[in-house]
Design a protein around this nucleic acid. Structure first.
Lengths: 192, 192
DNA sequence: ATCGCTAATTATCTTTTGTAAAGTGCTTTC
DNA sequence: GAAAGCACTTTACAAAAGATAATTAGCGAT
């Protein structure tokens, strides 16, 4: 199976039996555009891994607008973070941006294995490190640059997001309004 | 020793011998205001844990201005994240905001233990989860709110930072200029 | 107490963003 | 094929933030 190979490539220290075990913990789920995987307020231990497509986590702000906090593409986790880490109901909604193939497994089953199996512990630490680092870079971006520069950087480093995600999601992801992003786009395209 | 007790309180699953072992990995360092713990570009495996005082991580933006990415206060880690996770030179500088008592230990020694000791693995995962969650909340803040609301929220949730850190550090932490933060402060104090 | 340095505030002006509303283009649907 | 829905753009105006410079406040050293 292709997923098996992808996991093997990304985490080469995992013996095949562990990969098979991880795969046995979950199942493949197909989502259409807009389908919700986990809804805010839900208390769940379901974790998603994007095999193909794109997911996003969003919250709803004081004005009732959806604010996209993070996108997940191929081989990236799509999970209700605060729910897992705090054992609370999900504070974010997780939904498909594109038709998406998701590998869904039980996080608690995985985490409980990580408490008795060093390889799982290492895998979990790697996953956390990867996500944490991406979050820090995102914060650096917010503190260091202005919206226009953020758009430019996104264009340079993860341009595929701009091609694949609707502009209104991107806008809140960049911390601005769709109107403002539209203006930025115009300025940037007139390269100045 | 007080640090022993604090670790014991925060990570109750750690047996005393592990705590003592952790403590044996490091030493206490005293820093004065402005003292640099780890400098950008340095390749180090030193990790700090704030016992008393305050540290900050900062980067330098395109205009040569310092941008504070994160503060660390009591029992929070003060470390060069990207350096640890990627094995590269530090991309951030870590320095004392207040006179600070820092417990300094070797991250690699700790991490290597976490690869053979489940309790260390769990401790490491807990540390990562804590930091990751804080980072996500920070991102939610940037995407969801305007500078003035961010200041308000900071005032509500971590007001002590505002009392203890210079405004110029807080400004970049909030992603704005010191001048702008000064104006926000004025608006907020005139409660409207 | 004064000097000197830095931080914080204030003032002015420019640029950008937010907000609301209208317009454009494309797809869906009955 | 007209209407409705949606995403994106555009416009107009108000509010906020950036840039810069000048002023004031705070603080340690002499």
């Amino acid at each position: 199976m292709e997923l098996f190979q992808k996991i093997k490539d990304k985490y080469p220290y995992l013996p095949e039996d562990r990969i098979l075990d991880v795969l046995s913990l979950g199942e493949i789920v197909m989502l259409n555009v807009g389908d919700i995987f986990i809804k805010e307020g839900e208390k769940t231990s379901k974790a998603g891994l994007v095999i193909e497509g794109m997911m996003r986590n969003y919250i709803v702000n004081d004005n009732g607008e959806e604010v996209t906090v993070v996108f997940a593409t191929e081989m990236q986790p799509s999970v209700p973070y605060s729910s897992f880490f705090l054992g609370r109901a999900a504070s974010e909604t997780t939904a498909a941006v594109e038709p998406t193939i998701l590998f869904v497994m039980d996080f608690l089953a995985f985490k409980s294995r990580s408490k008795s199996d060093l390889l799982y512990a290492r895998l979990y630490a790697d996953l956390l490190e990867e996500g944490y680092l991406a979050a820090i870079e995102r914060i650096e971006d917010f503190t260091r640059t202005k919206p226009e520069q953020r758009y430019q950087r996104l264009l340079d480093t993860r341009g595929f997001l701009i091609e694949r995600a609707p502009l209104k999601y991107l806008a809140s992801y960049l911390g601005i309004t769709p109107v403002s992003l539209s203006r930025i786009r115009k300025r940037v395209s007139q390269n100045r």
